[in-house]
Design a binder for these strands. Structure first.
Lengths: 358, 358
DNA sequence: CATTTTCGTTGGATCGATTCAAATTTTGCT
DNA sequence: AGCAAAATTTGAATCGATCCAACGAAAATG
């Protein structure tokens, strides 16, 4: 049978049933939005007319224009839509966002697009009261687009130096420092870093110059945190390999190959995301290296998967869900000054880190 | 700093900048929607005015009303919003939906609500071109609400006998039959069933009478499929315990306790969802029972987690993502007859099933 | 019975854009 | 210059509701 929603077309508006019921459109509107102020007899007549004509209730499109508020927040990313359901970090974040939205009755609109033009259009035409912007790759462009909409928006996990952007994030330098400190305390002296992207579309060992020109301040800050802590115990940080990955399996494995091709391989790996760290765990195990006896690994993020890996991953946990909740609140109550917030991170020690051999 | 989106208020409309630039609103509109038909000089003038007045581009609220199409589909469920990001089945489904939406540039609006009133309102006021309804608990109410909107909608995983509802699902009877058949072929003769809900807010062993009065036809069909196949090999199905769970950890464990309290415990468990099956695996292992030597377990759904459990789970895989994709297409091309579709299921044999001991 | 109140209803204004036929200006050609 | 064709611009109509001041009728009050 056909989609059964369509008699033919549906040009049946509130005005139509008002006419059919012999009342003004004002009254007809009241029947639906404030039935208590309409006389019962009239109310029933209008409802009967609506029923008879197959009226589906006041069209939100019309209401919206008058009301002004959509009661939904947009969550935007430059990744494909499925990112929200696949990526562990995104999922925890979305859970936090969901919770805050549920509490206030707001809806969630997922906004994304593969190509840039589509993305621009989608952001420009999203029916939302504000945006939460997921800043992964292409973050700055997203922020730019969101800002153009002149709607409240909050950037998540972005450490742009642009102070005019409201952002919720963590202290990457301090967090990375905690990770490095944990490993130096255990006695490690030979390190390698598996980094998130410093710039778009590039992977491989990075030079100091490339770090200086990083597009992604968050990545740079984490590296700063690592290296600062390492130099405190006298390690020559110029000898620490920093391999830039795309936060995916392939580039991470390539990085590990590179790093372990050295004749003085590291005893400890600092991974800038749990995702990278988990790939490393797998790669090391396949390679026959024991974690943590041969190599220690410390991640960053604190996604749930990190707790159940083999071995469980030591990591710097961000309050991911809380960040999501805060972002929603910042948008819905976007009257007061929201500005940038930094939430605390926490070192969670699990099985993937231990003293170096010997 | 303040939310920086608000100079004060934003009463700056297209008409305002039209006036400022000294053109009609028709022309001003064209500058944004079809810039190529406006003379360059005028175009620049209007754009300059927009820039100067802090105009954020044509408000989609206004455009929407005129255009009629929202270009977004709503995904509705009676669970809290976080369900979409937590539940493995939902996540795979959403991945399929995402993919189809990405391909067509449509957005996704998540619609849900804890309490029923809020849910009704949210559905009535959702700005979408159609609904995909996740029919878990409270499915019939959801379908009812969606239907009242008179928008195209598709029910997922619903086996209501109501033929007037467009639905996409699988042949539950046949699928369950395959699961049972697999186990009887292996030689099993003592079974227990861990069922999904037959009705709301109830768990425990179910009677034939309760099955007959089931609210959820899908659950009933799966049970029918199981039992029919079992009786084919001469098993007295009246002796098979059927424990109704809430598809969560607590009720599943309670069911297992009950089932294994018997003096003739089953050698095989038919679980109506992978989620239930995975809990069973864990419980059995904690109880010191070996899977599959002591007890075989077969799930239903084919979620990714089932492939990596210990042991990997034998299950009846539904084409979950494909169902999501089809649902989106059914809504976006809701001209032709969509009606109900049944997709094939597949038995995937993994480590959780084997011949009974002895 | 005259006068307030109260209750329900009406219809115009408004939300912010897009569309399109008609009016106007430019351009192209002879 | 004169005129047709092409390119731009205009302004009214429309999308589908909600809001609200004003109004008429019924009920309460003096």
């Amino acid at each position: 049978m056909a989609s059964l929603t369509a008699g033919n077309r549906r040009p049946v508006r509130l005005a139509d049933i008002a006419k059919a019921a012999g009342v003004s459109h004002g009254t007809a509107s009241n029947v639906f939005s404030r039935p208590e102020i309409v006389r019962e007899e009239v109310r029933d007549r209008v409802r009967a007319a609506a029923e008879a004509m197959g009226y589906g209730g006041p069209d939100p499109k019309g209401r919206l224009l008058r009301a002004g508020k959509v009661n939904a927040i947009g969550v935007a990313t430059a990744e494909p839509l499925s990112y929200f359901f696949d990526d562990p970090f995104a999922r925890v974040m979305m859970a936090g966002i969901s919770q805050a939205c549920d509490a206030t009755g707001a809806g969630i609109s997922l906004v994304s697009a593969a190509n840039n033009e589509q993305l621009a259009w989608n952001i420009q035409s999203a029916l939302v009261d504000g945006f939460i912007v997921f800043c992964i790759e292409g973050g700055s462009r997203l922020v730019e687009l969101a800002r153009e909409r002149k709607l409240p928006f909050v950037a998540l996990d972005l450490d742009s130096e642009d102070g005019s952007v409201a952002a919720i994030g963590v202290d990457n330098i301090a967090g990375a420092g905690m990770a490095a400190r944990h490993l130096t305390d255990l006695g490690h002296r030979r390190f390698a870093v598996l980094a998130l992207p410093f710039a778009d579309d590039r992977t491989g060992l990075v030079s100091a110059e490339q770090v200086r020109q990083a597009t992604y301040a968050g990545t740079r800050d984490r590296l700063t945190g690592y290296l600062r802590e390492l130099s405190r115990v006298g390690i020559d940080t110029s000898k620490v390999s920093v391999y830039e990955t795309a936060n995916d399996v392939a580039s991470t494995k390539a990085g590990l190959e590179t790093i372990f091709a050295s004749d003085a391989p590291p005893t400890a790996i600092l991974a800038m995301s749990d995702r990278i760290a988990l790939v490393a765990l797998e790669w090391l195990s396949a390679r026959g290296l024991n974690v943590p006896d041969d190599v220690s690994v410390v991640g960053f993020d604190g996604v749930p998967e990190a707790a159940v890996s083999e071995p469980p991953l030591t990591t710097i946990a961000q309050p991911i869900a809380e960040m999501g909740r805060l972002a929603v609140r910042a948008i819905l109550e976007s009257d007061g000054p929201v500005s940038r917030q930094q939430l605390p991170v926490e070192l969670i020690v699990r099985g993937s880190s231990g003293p170096p051999r010997g």
